[in-house]
Design a protein around this nucleic acid. Sequence first.
DNA 1: CTGAAAGCGCTTACAG
DNA 2: CTGAAAGCGCTTACAG
Lengths: 327, 327
Amino acid sequence: MAGVSTATVSRALANPEKVSEATRAKVAQAVRETGYSPNAAARSLRRSESKTIVVILPDIANPFFSDVISGLEEVAHSAGYKVLLGDSAHDPKRAQDYFDLVPTNQADGIILLTTEIPYTLVKDRQLKSGFPLVMACEYFDDLELPTIYVDNEKGASKAIDYLLDMGHTHIASISGPISNPICRDRHQGFLNCLRKKQLNFDEKYLRQGDFSFSAGYQQGRVLLQMKDRPTAFFCHNDEMAVGVIKAARDLDLKVPGDVSVVGFDNIKFGEYCEPELTTVHQPREDIGRQAMKMMLDILASNDVPIRQTLRTQLIVRGSAGAKPQTH
Amino acid sequence: MAGVSTATVSRALANPEKVSEATRAKVAQAVRETGYSPNAAARSLRRSESKTIVVILPDIANPFFSDVISGLEEVAHSAGYKVLLGDSAHDPKRAQDYFDLVPTNQADGIILLTTEIPYTLVKDRQLKSGFPLVMACEYFDDLELPTIYVDNEKGASKAIDYLLDMGHTHIASISGPISNPICRDRHQGFLNCLRKKQLNFDEKYLRQGDFSFSAGYQQGRVLLQMKDRPTAFFCHNDEMAVGVIKAARDLDLKVPGDVSVVGFDNIKFGEYCEPELTTVHQPREDIGRQAMKMMLDILASNDVPIRQTLRTQLIVRGSAGAKPQTH
DNA sequence: CTGAAAGCGCTTACAG
DNA sequence: CTGAAAGCGCTTACAG
């Protein structure tokens, strides 16, 4: 229709500078009239790239991830990449399926936001050097994977130092799964602070949850019903912290009058609960942006650092206060 | 390696019943040894289908959508389809890009969870009969699009009848954008209930928000500072309802003692705020499942209904109570 | 600056 | 039940 070969059309569309201005105009006109759009499958086949990055996350419903995703998409989009979101929570077979998108050329790389997938899956891929795999938010401690996350030990320390400064000595921890390295780091930060003050940690004050509201509620309830109940809680995420606050309310305990609660993540909702949540902020969009930049660097065969950490920030609101006098 | 032609390998993998058992075994063995995986781009090109469905939603951070997505993915996955999530919120150009995935063969269909995208985009596609487009949760009232959503008018009526039964006569409404048909339906349900009781609606009690926490907070604050402030609020979603509760708290008003608040959607978080939220439940996973089934029906050239509605349910918790005596 | 031609890796109608 | 062959729609090295 433009009176030129398909080769020229291809060039006019993909590398306009390789084509004369007159031809470019004719092609553009014909494209407009016909409503032509290039077939992406054919292009993928020819170029062996899909311009798609898969992001595997444990739970779409967790508001923590939405900001990470925004950051990820921002960078991806401006580089002409699409983001395919994969929820792995329900079964490990799904994670497998998502990983398989790379060898089948449906995706160019994988960004992992969770360690809750079969370890061998990651290990095998990581061994093939050149498999484009980036980890964000969490990490595997025995794998040399390009990773971007927050200094969890320091983050926890900020929360615990704050509670110690308010006089608390009986501090409980509602941790995420202790198999998770970031949870171990946070717990380490916790212990370090106690040690500096020559305080011992009583193991009965440590409970594990799965980062859900209800885990926080259940574990909080158990701890609050102990005869020497803790006067403060450090929770490994905000949803569990909100669960603890509800447990306290149900037991007629005031927050922060009777119990102080500190969360982790700084999700939006923390500003709207009662009392407003004191928490440790993670720069979620930044994590997302950096992770996608790392991925693009890998795909461009640039060098990428193995691990990179960002800073947290203690956000002081109303859910933590002085240790109660009577205790 | 299996000593057969590529045609036979292809058949052994895609239509095992067309191949002898011995051959099938040889192929399977070779696949295992080589780690072969078929190139999806080539398959897409040949079959002209991508087995990918794009879902366009206004805001990934809104927890309302995560359950819809679960339902969508459940059905998609079991039919061998992938789901590509697209956040359209930030700019309309993105929505355009997502729509373009269909003519370029990168996606087989579009599921829309929002009306907040350029209208012409949808209109043009809808005119091309056969363009695989399904709408869920919301709808365009002047477009004949296969749509699955909830009976919003009835849903609102359940909330309002409940408030009227408790003696409230000054009920405020914090609506979503009134340009949104589902918001008009909800408001209509509201007005119908008042009319049945011979009550007039005072327009000053109607405020619009954008479904965010902060919109609920701001509009709630304005309404609660009126001299004849309402004794009850009907909010078009739960986040705005939570915002109103916070506004009441900041003004030293008790919920539900001084003000009753009812939300819409029944998001998880409603169970963890104080007081727990009374709200109208939407069967979100069902909506998702049905929407994806409609899409698969369209792709299989089966007939699909233009509009299908599901039922809501009033969830009574603690945020709404009797009209205060003193008022 | 442009065209002819080859080839990316599948799938499938056709022939045997 | 199996193979040879064509073709899906691009892109790009090569030649002019």
